[in-house]
Amino acid sequence: MDKKRTYRLALAAILCAQALALSFLEGLLPPIPWLPPGAKPGLSNIIIMFAADSLGLPMALTIVLIKSGFAFLTRGASAALMSLAGGVLSALAMRLLLRYARQTFGLVGVSVICALCHNFGQLLAAAVLTGTRQVLYYAPMLALFGAATGVATGMILRAVLPALEKQKRFFDR
């Protein structure tokens, strides 16, 4: 029993490292014009989605928290808050979708919803941080961007799913 918990923890740690690596890679991208600074494709959502599904919401939220801690260390407090708001919202959405709409959406649909929630969370955080509602001006642009990146991450998730499953099985023994 204890052994299983240890395995789960080890899997979580690996997923967390992978999420961090992906978000670090994303950070190397230049800012995208017409989008608010900080808007990213959200590749690490792939990992968070997988974690929410295989390890449950608490573990997924832990990864989100660690990820925003990483953002705090590398990019400062406001980036951390935006990352946290986006991550929490998208992890929650993921969990709700898994519980109540298991058969309704495919991987693309789920990841689009997660991307939209992620972007919306970031936007809300930015609105709170700057104290202006003006940043909500970006909302429609971000929604288009989120829909596009959601489709992309959904397809990537499908492609790397076998590898992720294999990795999980390795820790399930």
């Binding site: 642009m141 288009l144 961007f145 829909a147 596009a148 489709v151």
Partner: peptide, 11 residues
Amino acid sequence: AAVLAAALAAV
């Protein structure tokens, strides 16, 4: 995807 890309590009 094509429609999406076109819409995004147009915007």
